[in-house]
Design a binder for these strands. Structure first.
Lengths: 229, 229
DNA sequence: TTTGATGGTGTATTTATTACACATGTAATA
DNA sequence: TATTACATGTGTAATAAATACACCATCAAA
């Protein structure tokens, strides 16, 4: 049944924009390339898609190889296919973004040979990037700006227990504008998807804030109601 | 400088969901395939990407070959890459949608050999589709449902001069719900992007309605203000 | 001239958004 | 133990936006 397709002279890759939130800053993971082309340049983590894996599987694998993490919110958002985007041939790249919980911990183990090292970089201060990765990053940034207004993605960037101030910081840094504290809290709590844990921060050198948790069950019940965060 | 990429055993295609609005119905263009696989099945128009064209160029070309039209609002919205989506090999398909002005006229000339014929079909009454085209269609449908709320895409489906009732029909059929006439008009006119042409319909067997035009210049001035249509 | 079908209009109610300032609690330290 | 530094936590009034709702006007055709 397998006949031959007229063209097989192309390939495709996945590139990932891995967002993380740490110390009040939105960061993405960049690798320093160890191979041509663009050896020694900074680039988004990415790789070629294997024959026997779907695009989503491939994105999941690449993320796992790079960070050791699984069960992460990832989403395909655009495909880049300019003729000369890759100097070695026709490579169409499918872009994904992921939202990671950072937290002074072990994330990031660039085991693979194609990367010398990997660093988290503040999105407001990125170096020059290889290929068309600047464009890929910008489109990803736009995407999460839109997405955060309608979907509960901010929680993916925070630890399971978080304070309202931390949550507000995520919104402020992604939307790139200050929000009013009282209005923000009123609105967030009004959705009824945050559970007050009756628990306080500890180890902070000021008044400890109440910890909340995102309640997925309650959110699921609202589905279809088009919340506007 | 050109080295060899490790894998070149794959290919990619474009599939298009062409939306049109006619006689109060939202329709898409389907072709009846004349080639294996899925010979004689209904399918979305699509084709393989050529070596020397970008994805956007390819989408534009395919649309032009099929309809004779150019200068059409098209947008890439998702890429489908399940391993077995194409029975003859690994084919990743980049999906685009386009919004066309129908109007009893000449659109649609399925000249190519791979299609027997092409028909406009109401989205509420589609036949079984080849490949994963049902899924591709559904995702496209979701996309324009979201998009129409924030971007002025409804106008792309209407003739240059249109009545407010026609415009409301477009919203109703895409959002799949009835809207209140007075509230709809109040809101639409409040944006200040519709120009009253001081002109009436003619040839209708009832009271003729005022014709309006979408004013792109005024809309452009609002840019960044996040209108919610 | 009557009928049928669509065009066109306003107001009151409810809900959401915005603007805005000060007392409280905690840890560090003087 | 008093003071300081710092982030937490709270309410109300004003404005803007969304919603609900019904009838007369106009035109062509019969």
């Amino acid at each position: 049944m397998k006949e031959v397709l007229p063209k097989f002279n192309s390939t495709f890759s996945i590139d990932c924009v891995l967002f993380g939130f740490d110390e009040g800053e939105l960061k993405i993971l960049l690798i320093e390339r160890n191979e041509e082309p663009f050896k020694d340049w900074w680039a988004l983590p990415g790789n070629l898609v294997e024959e026997d894996e779907s695009l989503d599987q491939s994105a999941t694998r690449i993320l796992h190889e790079l960070t050791g993490l699984s069960d992460i919110y990832m989403e395909q958002y655009y495909t880049f296919g300019d003729v000369n985007r890759h100097p070695q041939g026709r490579v169409v790249s499918i872009a994904y973004y992921a939202l990671l919980r950072l937290g002074g911990d072990k994330v990031v183990k660039p085991i693979s040979n194609y990367a010398k090292q990997a660093y988290w970089r503040n999105v407001k201060d990125l170096p020059k990037l290889a290929f068309d990765h600047q464009q890929i990053f910008e489109k990803g940034m736009e995407k999460i700006k839109r997405r955060i207004k309608h979907q509960p993605i901010a929680f993916e960037l925070l630890p399971e227990k978080f304070t309202l101030t931390q949550l507000q910081n995520v919104y402020e840094v992604i939307l790139n504008k200050k929000l009013d504290k009282r209005n923000f809290r009123k609105k967030m709590l009004s959705f009824g998807v945050l559970r007050d844990l009756n628990e306080k921060q500890y180890g902070v050198s000021f008044r400890a804030a109440t910890l909340y948790k995102f309640d997925k069950r309650k959110y699921a019940k609202l589905f279809g109601k088009e919340i506007s965060f």
